[in-house]
Design a protein around this nucleic acid. Structure first.
Length: 634
RNA sequence: GCCUUCGUAGCCUAGCCCGGUGGGGCGUUACCUUGGUAAGGUAAUGGUCGCGGGUCCAAAUCCCGCCGAAGGCUCCA
């Protein structure tokens, strides 16, 4: 059974013609029902009375939520390609009607078996349109989270939703490293528990424990970021340490994209709601936008870099000789007005920073080649950020046909990755991309969050009028690759904190990668007497682009060490008479669970430099002396 | 948007069920302590108990409304 449920201001319908001989009797007159939840209903093979009751119960629950009590059961065959016998369908429709009346719902019903015409006015609120399916193997559409810019086909809302029902049915498989597809029910997840968790999350949306995600108290305690009650939910404040971490990530990802050949640009963060290229599908999703009014204009805040880059590419002139043309922007910020209940810590924000790199390619061959290069780029960037293959799972999404025609290509990517991945297969292409992959971090609550992603867009060049000149001097539409090599940077920090927490649970010392640690080396003088000498050591180390600070507070030595450990500082050095006289430092190394090793300042510098080679550097974001620092979080 | 839970000092939190002077810890400040690898001592500081209304002799506590937050649901272009 399939039901499209629409909360409507009104519906007017009129039976036009009998379509089947068992059609019910009805007058060919208009009927108008106001303030009603319309249930367009298709009865499928195998449906029964129990299902009818279930459907009505769900509708009742919905009525409760929206504080309404009127439904119209509207037989609507076009929702399914697997309809039951008409006689049976009519019986079930009548069951639904009788049960609904029994439950005290103000129930209307449109006649069965007629070709009807109707006009409907749908309420704009977020819950107004819902589709439900009671087929035994009903599968929901996958979330398209993390995608840089998703646009749907421009069609009437109702028919688009119906089409979605038809074509968006997902078939889930595990794509093995040899390129073969195994239906998910048949796959043995032995030893691949993260993949299993991720698959569960994608398919069933199972929600496990009720608990605050561990990274939230961590981001506060480490003075990285915090909620900002004075803003909108999901717009966070960044303390000096967090700002430095984020800034390093920004520099690093931009540097890697530049090396890859991306040309960095900057585009506006707000766009005209009524621009012809943009307005067509935005109107359908006003609830997700930040909208602002400026004089007589309506503007929306971008949710990805696509708009600016596409408008720029539209006006640019380029030929196959320059392609692939790669544009890059670090969006600070992208805005998505996620529902208040969906915003969580650094995992899901309303304003976030996302690197977004588009490559305009001449054809599928070139796109595939580029896709491959960018796949390696993504994996490598995340690896340097501190997230490795054990930390995430990959999903790839494509149509049956695309798989059939590009099997070797897809197989080569999985083989390169070296781990099985989740595959979502559609019968028909519904989204604008032909192929998409996304990389998903699995957190301590067994929830997944998309980081890197890339996709081959086959539609937007036309939509935005982006053209290149081919060998014959003719204009052609390019394919567009959309890639975010790291995903949202806030989300990378979320993943790093969640990973650190997991390490802690395993009994290891949680920490951030050395190049991202706000303080890399902490010096603790045993007494004020040594402050001058300690500062000399600090100058020596910091001259080599290493972030070093000095705990000159009046706390005891033990307490200073404890506090340094709680700040996850990688190297802690107590300096007293022994060290100053011998020149040998006793370095407490966090990575080795606090083991102390003797080394000179030069040796320490060399060791740190070796570990952070190739990474950007920012100086200490706070005063070197701890006594000069304000406390940002109790 | 719905449901649930929660709003007490910069931070964490007790007290609320069963109404009667709001308690502790961290931090901060001062003084003592200058200590050799995960919490030294003493004192001071800091509260429209989220906001508004009601009940009551009396409200942090009970009732109603509102605001905010978190989690869940739904949703996620």
């Amino acid at each position: 059974m399939r039901i499209l449920q629409l909360h409507s201001n009104y519906i007017v319908y009129k039976p036009v013609e009998k379509e089947i001989n068992i059609a019910e009797d009805a007058a060919k007159e208009e009927t108008k029902v106001d303030e009603v939840v319309v249930l367009f209903t298709a009865i499928e093979e195998g449906d029964n009375a129990a299902m009818a009751q279930k459907a009505i119960n769900d509708a009742r629950a919905f009525l409760g939520k929206i504080k309404a009590n009127r439904i119209l059961i509207y037989p609507f065959a076009h929702l399914s390609s697997n309809l039951s016998q008409p006689s049976q369908a009519l019986a079930i429709i009548k069951d639904m009607e009788a049960y609904a009346k029994e439950k005290g719902i103000d129930t209307f019903r449109a006649p069965f078996g007629w070709n009807k015409q109707f006009t409907i006015s749908i309420k704009g609120h977020p819950l107004a349109e819902q589709a439900r399916s009671y087929a035994p193997q009903a599968a929901a559409a996958a979330p398209q989270e993390g995608a840089p810019c998703e646009a749907k086909k421009e069609e009437e809302p109702v028919s688009a939703a119906l089409k979605a029902e038809d074509t968006m049915k997902s078939y889930w498989h595990i794509l093995q490293t040899d390129g073969s597809l195994v239906p998910i029910e048949e796959y043995k997840f032995k030893g691949k528990s993260n993949l299993q968790k991720f698959s569960q999350y994608e398919i069933k949306k199972t929600r496990a424990v009720t608990q605050m995600p561990p990274h939230v108290p961590l981001m506060k305690r480490l003075e990285i970021a915090d909620y900002e009650p004075g803003s909108d939910p999901g717009n966070v404040r960044w303390y000096p340490k967090g700002r430095m971490i984020k800034s390093l990530l920004e520099s690093y990802v931009s540097q890697r994209v530049a090396q890859y050949g991306g040309m960095e640009v900057e585009t506006p963060i707000m766009y005209d709601f009524h621009h012809p290229s943009l307005s067509s599908y935005l109107n359908r999703f006003p609830a997700r936008q930040y909208v602002l009014k400026s004089e007589d204009k309506e503007l929306f805040l971008r949710f990805a870099a696509c708009f600016g880059q596409f408008l720029m590419a539209h006006d640019a002139q380029f030929s196959y000789k320059q392609m692939p043309v790669k544009l890059y922007e670090l969006t600070r910020y992208s805005f998505r007005r996620e529902k208040s209940g969906e915003v969580v810590g650094l995992k899901r924000l309303r304003a976030f920073t996302m690197p977004d790199c588009h490559a305009f390619c001449v054809d599928l061959e070139q796109a595939k080649k580029e896709f491959n290069i960018r796949f390696d780029l993504c994996i490598s960037v995340l690896d340097d950020i501190g997230l490795v293959k054990d930390d995430y799972e990959i999903a790839m999404r494509f149509t049956k046909d695309f798989y059939a025609e590009n099997k070797e290509f897809i197989a080569s990517i999985v083989a390169k990755f070296g781990k099985p991945i989740l595959a979502e297969v559609w019968n028909e292409r519904f989204f604008y991309f032909a192929l998409k992959w996304d990389l998903n971090f699995v957190d301590n609550q067994d929830k997944a969050a998309a980081l890197s992603t890339d996709q081959i867009d086959v539609e937007n060049a036309k939509r935005y009028g982006i053209q290149y000149v081919d060998e014959k001097g003719e204009k052609q539409y390019p394919l567009i690759l959309h890639c975010s090599p790291s995903g949202a940077l806030e989300r990378d920090i979320y993943a790093l904190l969640e990973k650190a927490y997991r390490e802690q649970m395993k009994g290891n010392s949680p920490m951030l990668p050395l190049w991202l640690s706000p303080t890399q080396v902490r010096l603790i003088p045993i007494s004020d007497k040594f402050l001058d000498k300690v500062e000399a050591i600090a100058q020596q180390i910091s001259a080599k682009c290493i972030r070093v600070d000095i705990d000159d507070s009046s706390a005891t030595l033990q307490k200073k060490i404890r506090e340094a450990e709680q700040e996850w500082i990688p190297y802690i050095i107590v300096v007293g008479e022994k060290e100053i006289e011998s020149g040998t430092l006793s370095v407490r190394i966090r990575e080795l669970k606090g083991k102390q090793e003797a080394m000179t300042a030069e040796q320490l510098i060399a060791a740190v430099q070796a570990k952070i080679a190739g990474k950007p550097f920012k100086p200490l974001p706070l005063p070197m002396y701890l006594s000069k620092r304000p406390v940002f979080h109790g």
